[in-house]
Amino acid sequence: MISEKSLETGFVKNLKHNLGNFGLSPVAIGLFVLLGFAPYLIGDEYILRLLVISLLFGTLAMGFDLSAGYIDVANWGYAGLMGLGAYTSALLLTNLGISPWIGTLAGAFMAAIFGLLIGVLTLKMDGMFAAILAWFIGLILMALTTSLTGLTRGALGLNVDLYFNTGWSKPYFYVIFVICIVTYIVLRRVTNSNLGLAFSALGQDAEAARTCGVDPMKYKVINFTISCFVAGLCGGFYAHFMGILTPDIMSTKHTVEVLVIAYIGGRRSIWGPLLAAFLVVPVFEYLNFLMEFKYVIYGLLLILVMIFYPGGIAHFYNYIVGIFNEKKRKLTGPESNPFA
């Protein structure tokens, strides 16, 4: 009986460990499962659509955090790359009739290739230079999209076919839900691996990282490319979810929106930005009636977070866990070793 019990806990422990490798704590799994049933629990189309948008922004923010949090490069061209993914997929569909599913992936790869090039060109420089150059490139992508009216119809906007023959949010929910979970697992896995160790080292002290044998360009470019892939992927989804694309999708203000979510969520955690999207997106949706003042609040929030709590939600959580562990250590310390 005893052996049976230990066998079971052994199995549970093993499972927990394996899931942990994918960055899935029991809480995370619980939340994901709950979220998966949301379309059946929530009848309201409006709220469901809000969830879709939260998932979209959450996924974007996770991708953003990979660069901003780990290698300390805030990619100011992020919206440009998302737009690139969106337009790639949309144009493949309208001009060549390629399925939106393949198009979405193609858009992601397009953004990744662009990210690779931008990375090779800019990541030799300090994080801030890279950020600003990426921003320039984003601006140029937007200028080109606006000007190449023959291809993109410019500011008039491009009508894009949806993934499904319906405008109801439920099927789209599951598409972005899957994209989100896969992104979450991959990013958590990457950041918990040796690759993540190299990213963190480079972001926190590039010189020390080099003396440890970490090749700065190689790992920064890998990081940046993955992050841009996520942006492109989300862009593709956006195109076939919204049904209309204008160059505005590439504007800097969307980068700032993603960035605010990522930073409120907390840098260098992946889960923080995802969680923050579910707080920030609905709140700001609710504040829509404020018009421009909504963005004023956005700006204020960003400034307040930076001044008073630059670590964001994730940091706060770690802080609480730290206190808790300290208490546990104090309580169990002498007990576990009565002879000490």
Binding site: K253, V256, Y263, V296, L300, L302, I303, I307
Partner: peptide
């Protein structure tokens, strides 16, 4: 500080 200036710009 960069992000603070971004916030200022937004505001």
């Amino acid at each position: 500080s960069f992000l603070v200036t971004a916030g200022l710009s937004f505001i």
